[in-house]
């Protein structure tokens, strides 16, 4: 298994840093349809601290790249817009749900099955945090 230096360094920093006041509830992703090259992840992200929390980047195990997107529906049209920095206020959780905001996961490195877990590593203005998502049918 290939383990890149940036990812190794990243995981090392993750393990040693002070973790951000970010809590992740009901994190899940849909079991990928055959040949899927992009998937969406969903969760409720809660800021358990007292100051605004900004998610600047995400790394996800088993995926080449991850971004935060929002599906916008207007007048019957559906489009996705990228959310570069997601700010979460202490009293307002960010809800990532089907047809709305989601974690956009690009290029799975292998086939994922329902019942497996996927770990999401967040880089925030307060430091790193991670969360575990279930792959669901």
């Amino acid at each position: 298994m290939k383990f890149s230096i940036p990812l190794g360094l990243f995981l090392f920093l993750q393990a040693t840093a002070i973790h951000a006041a970010l809590e992740c509830r009901e994190a899940w992703l849909r079991e990928p349809p055959p040949n899927a090259s992009v998937l969406a992840g969903y969760a409720k992200l809660i800021n358990t601290g007292t100051s605004p929390l900004i998610i600047n980047a995400i790394n996800v195990a088993h995926f080449e790249r991850a971004e935060i997107h929002r599906t916008e529906i207007s007048g019957g049209m559906t489009r996705m817009v990228s959310v570069e920095h997601l700010t979460i206020a202490p009293d307002t959780p960010a809800v990532l749900e089907p047809g709305g905001m989601h974690l956009m996961l690009f290029h799975p490195r292998r086939t994922l099955r329902a019942g497996e877990k996927s770990t999401w590593y967040f880089t925030t203005n307060q430091g790193p945090q991670r969360c575990t998502a279930m792959i669901e049918k």
């Binding site: 849909r30 899927a36 996705m80 989601h102």
Partner: peptide, 13 residues
């Protein structure tokens, strides 16, 4: 389209 991560699988489901 199948490379649609959110709205298409959601609607088909």
């Amino acid at each position: 389209y199948t490379h649609c991560p959110d709205i298409c699988p959601t609607t088909l489901q």
